[in-house]
Amino acid sequence: MKFLTFSEDNQLLAQMITFLRSRGEVDAATSSDRDMPIEYGAGVVYALRGNAQYDSISAALKNLFESSGYDAVVIASTVLGREVAGHLSVGIGSDVAPELSSLEFKDGKAITKRWGYGGKTVIEETWNARVFTLLPGITDAEKNGSESTLKDIQLGDSRVEIISEEPKNLGGGNLESAKIIVSVGRGLGKKEGIEVAQKLADAVGGEIAGSRPVCLDYQWLSEDRQVGLSGKKVKPKVYIALGISGQIQHIAGMRGSKIVIAINKDKSAPIFEESDYGIVGDLYQVAPKLTEKLAA
């Protein structure tokens, strides 16, 4: 197999090169020039220069695909990556196997896994497709002692024009590698509650995270701290869920945790079905007591 892999995020691209290099030859394309992933085993890393929008990127990847004999294009599942994948798939007359957490090839078919019904099920499929989107975190990026050749490609025009850019205030931290995560949900009730959760996280040396409403609707936490189907997929040793009801989209992001501890007022909250230990109680009473005993 000969793969072309793309992401606008070079951390994700390094993960995908690492993942694909044991499955065949890999070249990579990126529209970012920060931390070029040239030490992970890609033969060539193409630097896409210009107005990097879904249409201009798709056209460049189509050119590479048709001129260089790739068997498959593998794209990191981000907002831009999904747009590129959909557009490119029409251009090269293929289907897209999307949102994959597992990808293997056998007898010319792709064998895949992805979430079904919003995270309720895992769907195993075989695909006749040349385009694939992989979930972030498909594997840890590992250098392999090689050095890729860098080549510049000038992108063509895009029909999308950038008017202005607005940097986000991201919290940093690294949820994917955190050993303990204290995660908060709508049940927190008010922004000031974050402090209660943060104290608990500090006491256990953990990271703070939240559900989609907490991070995106109310913005009590920064967007990069969202755990769930549309956010980070985490696998800490301990996941402490404070006031999280346990909607399936959230569960899909934390199912890999070793131990799940839930604190919720509502005895019938679905989170208890996905927990090892549960305390039915007010998080504003339970969390400070936990903090006190754990800090001691």
Binding site: Y54, R82, E83, A85, G86, V90, P98, T133
Partner: peptide, 9 residues
């Protein structure tokens, strides 16, 4: 998330 890109093309 495939429909927007596919319909565009």
């Amino acid at each position: 998330g495939m429909l927007a890109g596919r319909l565009s093309a």
